[in-house]
Structures are given as C-alpha cells and as structure tokens.
Design a protein around this nucleic acid. Structure first.
Lengths: 207, 207, 207, 207
DNA sequence: TATGAATGAGACTTCATTCAT
DNA sequence: CATGAATGAAGTCTCATTCAT
C-alpha cells in the first residue's frame, strides 16, 4: 500500500498544483492582455517554477485555452441552473443575466476568460467569437419560449431581440471590466432590467 | 524665398510621411492587440524605416496615443454634425448611432482607436475608459433634451437609459469587431433601432 | 538526498557561471569605457548566451555594480592584511600603496572597478567618487597614527598630507592605466616611495 | 563690393558658428564620457542642426580631436606665459601648476579635453597618453633647471621627481573633476604646494 | 551654409521554451 | 514532479551619419 499511497499523494499533489496554476492564470489573465501576461508571473502567483508550468501545460496557448474552457463550463453551469429554476421565459432570461453577472463579478477565472475572448488573433487559434454566437442562439431559444408561454410580446422579433440582449450584456461586461474590474456588472445588469423587460414585452413594433 | 520654399517643401514632406505613418498605425492596431503590434510592421506599411518612425513619434506609446487622439477627434466630429442636422432628440440619438457606426465600419484609424481603448493598462497610461464615461454624458444630455422636446417618454430614467444605450453601442462594437472587423456594425445598429426607440418612448416603467 | 544533491549541484553550477560572468565583465570593463562595453562581449567572454546574462544580473548597470563591489572588497582586503602586518604607521602606508599597486597590476576585476569609478554619471547611479573620499579618510587615520608613534613628523599637516597621498596614488593609477594597463603601477609606486617618505617625515613646514 | 561683403559676412558667420560649436562640444564633453555624449546635444547646445554639424566637422571623432587640440594649445600657452615670468625654476614649476589649475577650473573646453584624454581606446585613434608623457618631459626639463640654479636640491632624482609631480597633478585633476567638476583644483594645488616644495628641496635621499 | 528628414546598424532587454538533474 | 539554469529569437529604441532642398 505504500506505493499506492505515494502515488495517490503525488497525484493529489499534482492536481492541487494544477488547480493553483489555473487560479494563478486566471488572476494574471484577468488583470492584463494575453500578450502582456508573462508565464513567469503566473508561475510565481502559483508558487511554482516556470519549468513546472511546462509539465502541466504544453505552452502559453494551452494555459489560455484551459482558462477559456473552465470559463465556458462555469458559465454554462449558470445557464443550466437558471433554466431549472425559472418559471416564465422572461424570468429565465432575466435570471440568466443576473446569474452570469454575479459569477463574472466574483470569479477571476471567468473574468480571465472574458478578457481572453475579446482579444482575437492572439495566437490561440480558437475562434473566440464562437462563444458569443452560441449565446445568441441560447437567448433566441429562450425568447422563442417566451413568445410561446406568453411572457413576452407575441410579435417579438426574436432574432433582433436576441442580438440586442447579447449586445447589452457584452457591452455591460466590457464597460464594467474597464470601470472597476467587473465589480459593477451586477449593478449594471440590474439597472438594465427595466429596459430589457420593456423591449421584450412591448407589442406591435418591439425590438 | 528660396529658403522658405525649401523649408515649406520639407515640412510638407514630413507631414505627409506622418499621415502615412498614422494610417499605417491604424491599419496595424486595428488588426491586432497593442502588445502584438510590431513597430516594424507599421514602418513597413508606411513605407519608411523603423528609425524614421522615431523621428516623427517618440515611441510606441506615442504612436498609439496619436491614433487615439485622431479617433476621438473624428468621432467627436460625427457628434457635431449630427447635432446640427437632427430634428428631435430621438432623431439625434438614433442619427448619432448610425453616423458612428458608419464611421467605425469604414475608418481603420477609428477601428484602431477602439481596439486600443479596450486594452487597459498596456503602457499608454491614458485612462482609456475615460472616453466611454464621456459618451454616457453625451447620451444623457441628449436624452434630457428628448424628455424636454417630447420625443421621449416624460418619465424616462435618463441615467439608466443613457447607460443602457452605451452598453448597446459598445456591445455592438465589440461583437461586430470580433465578427467581421466592424463591417456588420451598421447592420447591427439598424437592427437595434426598433428596440432602442421602444425603450426611449415607452412610458411608466421604462428603462 | 537526491533532491538536495540536485539542488546543490545546480546552485554550484550557477555560482560558477556567475564567477565566469564576473571575470568576463572585469576583462571587458577593464579594456574599455562603460558605454563602449558590449554585453555581447561579456557574454561571449564568459562562454554563455546574452540571455543567460540576464538570468544572473538584472541589467548592464547591475553587472557594473557587481564589479565595483568585488573591487572594493578586494581592495579593502589589502588594507586589512597590511594593517595586521605593518610595524610603524609609515611602514603601513607604504605597504598599503605597494599592496594595492600589486593587486591592481594583476587583478583585471579590480582594474575594471577603477575604470568604472572614474566615469561618473554613466547610469550606475552609485556616487563613484565616494570610494576616493573613503581612502582619504583611511590615509588620514594612518597618518594620525604615524604622528603618534613617531614614525612621521610631529607637526605633519595630516589632512593635506592625506590628500596629497591620495592624489599621488590616483595619479599613478591613471597614468599607469593609460601607459600599459597598470603593469607599471608597482614600479611607479616604488619610485614615489622616497618622495612620499620625505613628505611624511620632514618637519617644520611639511605637506 | 556687395559680393565681397556678402562673402565676408558669410565667412564671419561661419566662424562664429564654428566657435559656438566648439564651445558646445566643450560643454558636453566636459559633462560626460565620449561614448555618452550625443552629437544631438552638442548641436542643440550650439543652436544649430545636426546636419550643420557635419558641415563643420567630419564626424564625432573630429569634434573630439578639435577639442583636444584647443585644450593642448591653451595649456601650452600657460606654460609659455609662466616660463617668461618665473624667477627660479622652483617658482616656475609651482607657478605652472597654479596657472594650469586656474585654467582648468574655469575653461570648459580644457575640462573637456582632460576628460577625453582619460578615456583611451574610444575611437579617436590619437594616443591620448602622449600628452602626459610630454608633460613629464617638460617637468623634468624645469627640474634640471632647478638643480642648476640652486632652487632645488642638488642631488634631486629628476626623473623620479618629475614623474611624482605629474602623478600629483593628474591625481588632483581626476579627484577634483569627480568631486566638483574641477572647481576645487586650485585649492588642491595650493594645498599640495608645501609638500611639493619639500620634495624638491630636501637633500640626500629626496624623491 | 544650413536644415528637416531619413536610414541602418546595432545596443539593451524580454520572454517563451527547453533541459539536465 | 519539480526546478534552476540556459537559450535564442525577436522587439523596442538610439544614434552617428547621409542627403535633397
């Protein structure tokens, strides 16, 4: 059992290191642009050597990709949770925005992912605009539900409204990121709530 | 007059080079992040040597600052023009968005300025979030006019609406930038038009 | 112990490299002015890459500072040794000059330090004239001993004599440095011996 | 006559510029090492363009050489003057030191020359130690006169004494240069006077 | 004569990445 | 797993020098 214990310990230790590394990457990438972020800083923040970093990740791009993947997972999680709890589609969309805002405001790793998503052509060959397209689809899908369940205007232009919501949320992210590192994002979203509801429920020529 | 002629010629030549340099900087900064942009590329694009670049601008930061300054000037120009032409405040704000969208979609230098504004703490110690604050003020001022001239809802929450408009526009900028280098921005703005009008004119609990 | 061994080995290797680097810096800085010295030459002379140099020293200034620090240590060592051995204060001061002359004539690092000390305001913000002031104090202190132990004239103007000695020694350094890279310094000091003794022992209006 | 006048004016203007340029070079080279001095600074200090500088001097080395040449001329002038006035050889040598000290303390161009002389292998292929050898010869020649006219010890070791004097003076130059840009040189020389006289007049085993 | 503009070589420095231990 | 050491490519910037006007 000695050997197995040692192995287990090592593996546990390795996982812990990896988590620390990811958190450190989040901290650094949330503070500055990808090109300005130094692997040295990440390693230091994680309390390990630069050499070690290359054991856990292949290179700088991989680190960023890992961050992006965690971000997407966590944001997706919010979507799942909200969809389970929400009543009407309108509540769902509003709850989604609120939930994401809270997540972003408190989770450095998610902040880092957002930052990274907004700097294309940086080397990480991922099509970073992809996630945004996805979110439009998500929103459109919910809006269609809203038209169906009567919580939104029956003649809502779903496509345009979904894009508008996306723009609002992305804009709020960017502005709160610049303003105070996303601390004000929940407030911004709350403040936009009334306007959003108006757009989604006003009939005739809405959105 | 020989001497003066010579001087004038030289100065003109210099200014021309500077313009080329600025355009080149616009092209490069609009394509990639500040930290990824290479002075070599800018110089090459302008058709001059790297050394020359330092004759006209002190360093990389100065180049970026010059780009930002031109961007702000051109965007301010749109504001002025629109304010002169517009009838109601509602027309004014919608015209402003349209005008800016067209400018951004076609002017590389302005695109570069936008990119630069969104990468804080990169070295150009300018508080790059400042312009966004300014635009909220501009919007708020126009909205107050709209409440007064009756083109908007009398009980409009001006502050919240101004922030929402700003978020919409910034979000549209970011998304169109990621999607197709701002080509789709005018379309996005046009598509948001109905929603914006709804928000600004719906009474009771608007925005 | 495997791990500790590995660490120790690495550290030893690093120290060795640093020593080589310092020696190379001595060789280069002793041959030319600070501003003319190329880090490339130092790295090459030490047999490592330029990049490596920055692993051990932060920048060019740091390298120079390290050289200066070693120089001062080695020269101070001579002072200590001589003070322990010397009989009279007169023997002490003459022995000090001889010892320093021999050190300077043979130690490239010390030569480099001397060169560096004589190029003020070059970037190494150390007040490089400080060491010279120090040496005047040292000399004055010994001379006071000489007045006390009777090996020098009782009415010696200690301050003036100390300054004169300093000037002689600095002058000899500079001239031998220009003449033949300090090879002739011991000869110069030996040749000055008689004059120095005269100045220090002649009564009435000496020094 | 118009043409000649114009020519004369131009020539005069040119000479004036050249003088300004030389003074500027003196100012700059007296402040920093040759390698640190920028032609741009010299041109600015002279109030002309860098391009103009190349009309008057071929290149950076030439500027330095011009400074050195003026320095040597002015220092030689002091020698001539002193030799005409002095009574005994002892007075002559002491007067020479005093005269040179005063010149150096007040003349930036001479200060610049001194600085330049002490940075060998800088590019100006002049053997900069040559002047110092010369001055030893001058001193030796005067000392021989002193032995002859009885103002110095009859058994003076002329060679050694001359070298010692040279070292004292060079040392004083260097130290005052480092201390306060040569302002204290006259004081240093005055303070060394008594010691020098002792060395030159003490019999038996002097110098 | 004089100058504004331009150039190119080369210096210092940074940083992702690799490797022996 | 981890690290200290090392590397090399590349980037920003400086500066002596040239040239057309």
């Amino acid at each position: 059992m000695d050997v197995n214990d040692a192995k287990a310990t090592k593996r546990a230790h390795g996982l812990e290191t990896q988590r620390a590394l990811l958190a450190a990457a989040g901290a650094v990438f949330s503070r500055m642009a990808y090109a300005d972020a130094r692997l040295k800083d990440i390693a230091e923040e994680a309390g390990i050597s630069q050499g070690s970093l290359y054991f856990h990740f292949g290179n700088k791009d991989d680190v960023a990709r890992a961050v992006l993947s965690v971000q997407q997972e966590r944001m997706g999680q919010v979507l799942t949770t909200v969809q389970e709890l929400a009543g009407s589609a309108l509540d769902c969309i509003l709850g989604l925005f609120e939930g994401l805002a809270d997540l972003i405001a408190t989770d450095e790793l998610v902040q880092a992912g957002i930052r990274l998503s907004m700097q294309p052509a940086t080397g990480l060959e991922v099509d970073s605009s992809a996630p945004y397209v996805e979110w439009v689809e998500v929103a459109a899908s919910i809006l269609r539900g809203g038209v169906a369940d009567g919580s939104m205007a029956p003649d809502l232009d779903v496509r345009a409204a979904a894009e508008l919501l996306n723009e609002i949320f992305v804009g709020a992210q960017v502005l709160s990121g610049l303003e105070d590192k996303w601390a004000s994002l929940p407030r911004r979203v709350a403040s936009a709530r009334a306007g959003i509801r108006t757009v989604l429920t006003s009939s005739t020529r809405a959105a």
